[in-house]
Amino acid sequence: MAAITYIQAISDGLREEMQRDDSVFCLGQDIGVYGGAFGVTKDLITQFGEERVWDTPLSETAIIGNAIGAALYGMRPVAEMQFADFVACGFNQIVSNAAKIHYRWGPKVPMVVRLPWGGGVSGGPFHSGCMEAWFFNVPGLKLVCPSTPTDAKGLIKAAIRDDNPVLYFEHKHLYRLPKVKEEVPEGDYVTPIGTARIAREGKHATIITYGIMVHYSVEAAETLAKEGVEVEVIDLRSLRPFDKEAVLASVRKTSRAMLVTEATITGSITGEFAALISDAAFEHLDAPIKRVGALDTPIPYAPPLEQAMLPDVKKIETALRELLAY
């Protein structure tokens, strides 16, 4: 079986789910005839027709609101935000309606919102953001963020089959990145929501991370491995619910913990993990918990500025050395 890109894995997952279950359909801007701004839904309209691939007017809130309505009927809609940043225009329907319906009056809301997210592509302040923390605080939502083609496919399937609103963060910098291409398991499989993955095994320190930072963290760990230090990298895959046991088991093993996020650090999800580790594994720690994230600025356009703002392999490596030296 040939290695496939991350974007191909998402497309394959979507197509297979649409074949498997005729209640699955897609809606979004430019996703039909054009095939989506990034091409994730390319050719779906040819295969499934415009009945199941809706080219919609330019309105994030209406796209999400109609997806909720269709989910109440019993469909399993997959809504695309052209860029994750634009979910700001659909925020209300997600947090006020989708997240609360089951808790309030009982019906399931089985829907997925796909969010092409992340920086490193000179997208500037409106096309590069990481907004998982906005939703991390909202009970009723599930948040997933695959970092590999295998999980991209496994999690889009799991998200579609889930009976709750699921936000699917797909990293656009990973879409066609050759080095993340891989063979994915044959046949039908899902990556269970709420399970982390050990991206790299180690024993001297643990990095807990997600999205593209998984790859950067592994790269930093490899550099240190040449010096005989083995760093474990946990790929969270799901942020809400997250895999507490996997995080704690690794930290108990290595005694040093570092959180890495691409998001602006203040108020990022990393604080929650630091609190968890401090609560449940304090006596195992040999060093204060370390955090690496983006600077607290909007994400700038110019490459030198963007690079200065975002975490990268070098910054992770530096922080790791500090953690290990404590």
Binding site: G65, N66, I68, G69, A70, L72, S96
Partner: peptide, 24 residues
């Protein structure tokens, strides 16, 4: 019957989504 929310206007999209799904 779809339950209202306090954020006004939101119910319109839920209603249309429901009947568009029914039309499918």
């Amino acid at each position: 019957m779809i339950a209202p929310v306090s954020m006004l206007g939101c119910t319109i999209a839920l209603c249309s989504g429901f009947v568009l799904a029914a039309r499918m």
